[in-house]
């Protein structure tokens, strides 16, 4: 019976993915992509991967949505519909320069498909490492197998992932420059917006902390909590309290790197004590994982809100330049 749900969900997800790529208008693409995120989250749940579903919900519905809307605003005024000459020129130059990117994209896509096929082909029978992870679970200090794998058995991978977020932020810094970032904002006068922000900030904080803590025993964890806390930063920025831009430079840098840094220092400390990198003593593993996850969530939240703050500031400045000319 549940085959109906799964079939409908699969058709919906693939249809939405195709349409969000092929839709003629940018706004259609973006909003179809939101719907795709929802279908994907539901699909993850049908695959019994609730951890991934929460991450998908948090990132697709929250962070990516805000970034996409911001990008839409920046793209919209570039091609005024009235000025046909400009539009024609734009599309002409586009068709010319698009051949090489298209070729690269298709080649990359084909390569990715081949790699994916090979990975599926090579899936070992009997669940691979699932049984091994299950037997070692009591030593990991947590009860949720996903958290155990992410922060204990494969901590090195998670550490690298946190580095990827930081590198993304560095790329945004490099592209945008620091001047726009440190521009202080004006607090919003809109009473409705103020009330919404005042109401949702504690809710977001509490639920993020809840997800962080529940990660020990069930679905949840640092990345999900980081996105929710990052949403606080985005909300405050939209309301005119850009605290990321206003805080002293050293404090911002500390917040951004504390997760990655603590993780690394801890890993090397245990290495110096004679173990392997990221090998925690089983007695303290639970509390250590909680500390690492908290600091990681803080760093992720700071990085996400800094990315949004910087991109949004650039957009505002571009608008000002346009309006003055």
């Amino acid at each position: 019976m549940s085959l109906i749900i799964d079939g409908l969900l699969a058709i919906l997800a693939i249809y939405l993915a195709l349409q969000s790529l092929l839709a003629p208008r940018l706004t259609q693409s973006v909003f179809l992509f939101f719907a795709f995120g929802l279908a994907l989250a539901l699909a993850w749940i049908r695959l019994a991967a609730v951890d991934v579903a929460i991450t998908e919900a948090a990132i697709a519905a929250g962070f990516l949505g805000v970034l996409f809307l911001d990008a839409l605003r920046d793209f919209a005024p570039r091609i005024p519909a009235k000025n046909e000459a400009v539009q024609k020129q734009y599309s002409k130059s586009q068709t010319k320069s698009l051949f090489l990117p298209r070729l690269t994209l298709w080649a990359g896509l084909g390569l990715f498909l081949l790699i994916a096929l090979e990975a599926v082909w090579k899936i070992p029978e009997g669940g691979g490492l699932t049984a091994a992870a299950g037997t070692l679970l009591p030593e990991s200090g947590v009860e949720n197998p996903v958290t155990a794998v992410l922060l204990n058995f494969r901590a090195y991978d998670t550490w690298l992932e946190m580095g990827v977020i930081l590198i993304g932020l560095l790329a945004v810094f490099a592209a945008g420059g620091k001047m726009a970032y440190r521009k202080p904002g004006v607090a919003s006068q809109d009473p409705l917006l103020r009330q919404v922000i005042l109401f949702f900030t504690p809710v977001l904080f509490l639920f993020g902390a809840f997800l962080l803590y529940i990660g020990k025993t069930g679905p949840g964890g640092a990345f999900q909590a980081g996105v929710l806390w990052g949403a606080i930063g985005i909300l405050l920025h939209l309301g005119g309290w850009p605290f990321i831009a206003l805080m002293p430079r050293w404090l911002g840098q500390l917040l951004l790197t504390v997760g990655l840094g603590f993780f690394l220092v801890l890993g090397f400390l245990f290495m110096a004590a004679g173990g392997a990198l990221f090998e925690y003593p089983p007695a303290y593993a639970g509390i250590l994982i909680l500390i690492i996850e908290t600091l990681a969530a803080i760093s992720i939240a700071a990085a996400l809100s800094a990315i949004f703050a910087l991109l949004n500031q650039i957009g505002e400045e571009a608008d000002e330049i346009e309006s003055t000319t």
Binding site: F34, L38, A41, I45, V50, A53, I54, A57, A58, A61, G62, G65, V66, L69, D70, L193, V196, I197, F200, V203, L204, F207, L211, I214, G218, P219, G220, Q224, V227, L228, A231, I234, L235, L238, G239
Partner: peptide, 17 residues
């Protein structure tokens, strides 16, 4: 929990728009 995640983050899109 997934439902609540969707719920609390839905407000972001509206405010952002």
């Amino acid at each position: 929990n997934v439902a609540i995640t969707f719920n609390v983050l839905a407000i972001l899109l509206v405010i952002s728009l």
